[in-house]
Design a binder for these strands. Structure first.
Lengths: 215, 215
DNA sequence: CAATGTGAACGGGTTCACAGCC
DNA sequence: GGCTGTGAACCCGTTCACATTG
């Protein structure tokens, strides 16, 4: 059966990995993948793969595996990768510029169509093909260019204000690299990538083993 | 009681947020924080704060709250933020350079002491204060400079090889920005920051509401 | 036989709600 | 009265194991 009810978040987060795994999959003589093989490619275990795929209503064939082409299609469909979601990068410092480059470069349906920065020297210029505007123009930009996703790479002080501006302009998807907790209405999806926090988590584990060694 | 058994991963991941929240906390007349206030600062709910802090064996005082200075001390202690963990950045492309800058800039106990890159033009130069070496020297670098953490910002093809080299050199903490699944022994802690995957997750939700609207 | 699909058991983390203490 | 500390309930996700099917 193809229940196709709500797909659990944890599953959604793995679908991109499966998709990537399938792309790396040698399209050999036989065009089928087993859950075991896919598990390897995605770095998870086979049970998880099967349960995840069952949420898509996808059918493999017992004793054989999944048709890799069809599976790729199914996952693409579920994720909606055919859509193009224009991105605006807010804050074109070192990190912002690198992000704009990276995101635009890997041509995955997330074109960076504009950027903002408060530096008067940057406003009006085009950096790596991306036009830089004043922060005040964010609303305009979003509307004119149909921006769907906002990336926040401003200094921490400016992050909440930028988020507010994005939300006010109707953006409901935000990816933030600022080391701050952002508040926004519930309907806004915020994914926060916090480098310092990540490092501190790594540091915690190093600290633990150091303590263990000293005992 | 101060059980101080194993601290749950989910709690560890939030401790940095509490620490940051405390730093932002106005050291007012009274030097106490309630779980409610801290919850706001960290963007979580109060019950979580209390349970998390209970794992540290920390004591607040009922009816009052937590002594903010002591709490800061306790969390710092638990995370081991007093330690300094030298970092090597592998791959000094746009992203790597920005990361090296960022991590080094926010002076948090993670000095970027070296970098590697396969580009012959970069090897031997010093970028933003960070000396760039050939990938083959990774082992040396790690030993000479006591590197504890490796950041992988190479192209995807080179990521696994770089991880292997880091592991071979004895590095047990890796932060990867490469869009690949890395394999490593269990004792190696890998934190993967996958920008494209993050964007695709955002895209999924945008896709969902678009579908919902069209129905 | 081989590999899927899935109910059932399990486990970690979150939330609730309230007893305990200032 | 206010706020902490914490058992209990709850929820989500993972894992297991096996019946099911090409």
């Amino acid at each position: 059966m193809a229940p196709l009810g709500r797909i659990p978040e944890a599953t959604v987060a793995r679908l991109p990995l499966y998709l990537r795994g399938l792309d790396a999959f040698p399209v050999g003589v036989t065009a089928t993948v087993s859950s075991d093989e896919l598990a390897d490619l995605a770095g998870v275990n086979a049970a998880k793969v099967r349960k995840d795929l069952s949420h898509l209503g996808t059918y493999g064939t017992r004793g054989v595996g999944y048709d890799s082409a069809f599976l790729r299609f199914q996952i693409s469909q579920a994720l909606g990768v055919a859509n193009v979601w224009p991105v605006v990068v807010c804050g074109m410092g070192n990190l912002g510029r690198a992000l704009a480059n990276h995101i635009g470069f890997t041509d995955c349906g997330f074109p960076v169509v504009a950027a903002t920065d408060s530096d008067l020297d940057k406003i009006g210029t085009v950096v790596d093909g991306v036009p830089v505007h004043a922060p005040g123009e964010l609303g305009d930009i979003v509307h004119r260019l149909n921006v769907a996703i906002g990336v926040i790479s401003t200094p921490p002080e400016a992050a909440q204000g930028t988020a507010d501006a994005l939300v006010a302009a109707g953006v409901t998807s935000i990816m933030s690299f600022a080391p701050t907790v952002l508040s926004a209405p519930d309907e806004v999806e915020i994914r926060s990538v916090d480098l310092v926090t990540e490092l501190q988590i790594l540091g915690f584990h190093l600290h633990r083993v150091r303590i263990a060694e000293d005992s």
